[in-house]
Amino acid sequence: MAAYWISTYVEVTDEEKLAAYAALAGPALEGAGGTFLARGLPEQVYEAGRSTRTVLIEFASVGAAVAAHDGSAYQEALAALGDGAVRDLRIVPGA
């Protein structure tokens, strides 16, 4: 069953660190089998929604998404990000 990696950027504190992270994270996650479905700022928000950067990536399974996160290539990207952003990251199984 597919799984979805959903990350919301609560706060960006360093644009340069975020750019360094993005340069590493995209290839790392795609290399681990992820497919980017959406990324960027929302066009519309409702209820308690916030107009913050959001990324949605599809993986073949929860296990594949967790392995991508825990893999060395993505961990290198996280090290580049450091304290450059506060994020809410979730891995959710498909319905």
Rank of each mutant, 00 (worst) to 15 (best):
M1N: 06
M1G: 15
A3E: 03
Y4Q: 05
Y4M: 06
W5A: 01
I6W: 08
I6P: 03
I6Y: 05
I6M: 11
T8C: 12
Y9W: 02
V10C: 01
E11W: 03
V12K: 02
V12E: 07
T13L: 09
D14S: 07
E15V: 06
E15D: 12
E15F: 05
E15A: 15
E15Q: 13
E16Q: 15
K17F: 04
K17G: 05
A19T: 02
A19M: 01
A20G: 07
Y21A: 01
Y21V: 01
A22T: 11
A22V: 07
A23T: 09
L24T: 02
A25W: 01
G26A: 05
G26C: 02
P27M: 10
P27I: 14
A28D: 00
A28Q: 04
A28Y: 03
A28M: 08
L29P: 00
E30N: 10
E30H: 10
G31V: 08
A32Q: 09
G34E: 12
T35H: 12
F36T: 05
F36V: 14
L37V: 12
L37D: 09
L37C: 09
A38P: 12
R39G: 00
G40R: 11
L41S: 06
P42V: 11
Y46D: 11
E47P: 00
A48G: 12
R50I: 08
T52L: 02
R53N: 11
R53C: 03
L56Q: 03
L56T: 07
L56W: 10
L56F: 11
I57G: 00
E58T: 04
F59K: 00
F59M: 02
F59R: 00
A60I: 10
S61W: 06
V62F: 08
V62W: 11
A64V: 08
A65V: 11
A67F: 04
A67D: 08
A67H: 05
D70N: 13
S72Y: 05
S72A: 15
A73V: 00
A73R: 00
Y74F: 15
Y74D: 01
Q75H: 09
Q75E: 08
Q75K: 14
E76C: 03
E76P: 00
A77T: 07
L78R: 10
A79T: 13
A79Q: 04
A79R: 07
A80W: 01
G82R: 10
D83I: 03
G84I: 12
G84P: 14
G84N: 15
A85L: 14
A85S: 13
V86M: 07
R87T: 09
R87D: 02
D88Q: 13
L89F: 14
L89E: 12
L89V: 15
L89H: 11
R90S: 04
R90N: 04
R90T: 09
R90G: 00
I91A: 06
I91R: 01
V92L: 15
P93Y: 10
P93I: 07
P93K: 10
P93M: 11
A95L: 14
A95Y: 12
